Amino acid sequence: MERFVGRRALVTGAGKGIGRAVAVALSRAGAHVVALSRTQADLDGLQKECPGIQTLCVDVGDWEATEAALNKVDDIDLLVNNAGIALLQPFLEVTKDAFDRSFSVNLRAALQISQIVARKLIARGAPGAIVNVSSQASQRAVLDHTVYCSTKSALDMLTKTMAQELGPHKAPATQPGPAQTGQGKATTFLLPISGRADGQ
């Protein structure tokens, strides 16, 4: 775990659940962590637990606010796209607002934040990694989870296309098995990125 010393990590959805656990683990492993959440109270609690963590309160569903917030953050080496919401509705009752909100947070935010981080990594020729936190719901239909399942399936494909297009920058993707947490099971995709020709 010493490899995280001196590395800067951004974790979205870090206020609770998987994201909080990842932020704490990375901080304790020596990384300088920027924890992002839309709930200030959750970030305050996290900072009390790990005073060295830098917090950033922003709603990743808001494209402009997210871009403005990340412009104030120093270069990132490790990104964990964990932010997500589950607005559960039966298929016949799915609303436009629930659909739009779910896709903006669970999918579009991962695209936007990954673009920002990857562009900077490549520009400075620095090695790094992006982790997209998906779910077994991406592979299996769940009652009342029409929109959630759809967003996670789309996130899986986004991750694959990211790997393909970032390939020239040494960005293969791997899919470890599910991790049991208090928030359910999650599948993670790891995208190592390097702007150097040797991929080191």
Rank of each mutant, 00 (worst) to 15 (best):
51 P>N: 13
19 G>V: 08
11 V>A: 05
89 Q>R: 12
63 W>Y: 11
88 L>S: 07
70 L>I: 07
86 A>M: 11
110 A>N: 04
58 V>D: 02
109 A>P: 06
11 V>Y: 10
105 V>N: 11
65 A>W: 02
96 K>R: 12
45 G>E: 14
29 A>L: 14
93 E>R: 07
60 V>L: 08
103 F>C: 08
14 A>Y: 00
110 A>I: 06
77 D>T: 06
52 G>M: 08
34 V>D: 06
56 L>S: 04
25 A>M: 02
36 L>T: 08
39 T>N: 15
122 I>G: 00
61 G>K: 02
73 V>D: 12
95 T>H: 05
90 P>S: 12
24 V>L: 11
51 P>V: 06
101 R>N: 01
104 S>A: 14
84 G>P: 01
98 A>G: 10
105 V>E: 09
96 K>L: 10
98 A>R: 09
122 I>N: 04
68 A>N: 11
98 A>F: 01
81 N>E: 05
101 R>F: 08
55 T>I: 05
96 K>Q: 14
103 F>W: 03
72 K>D: 14
83 A>T: 06
73 V>L: 03
116 I>R: 08
16 K>E: 07
96 K>S: 13
58 V>I: 07
29 A>F: 09
97 D>F: 02
114 S>V: 00
64 E>A: 15
78 L>F: 09
111 L>V: 14
13 G>R: 08
87 L>Y: 07
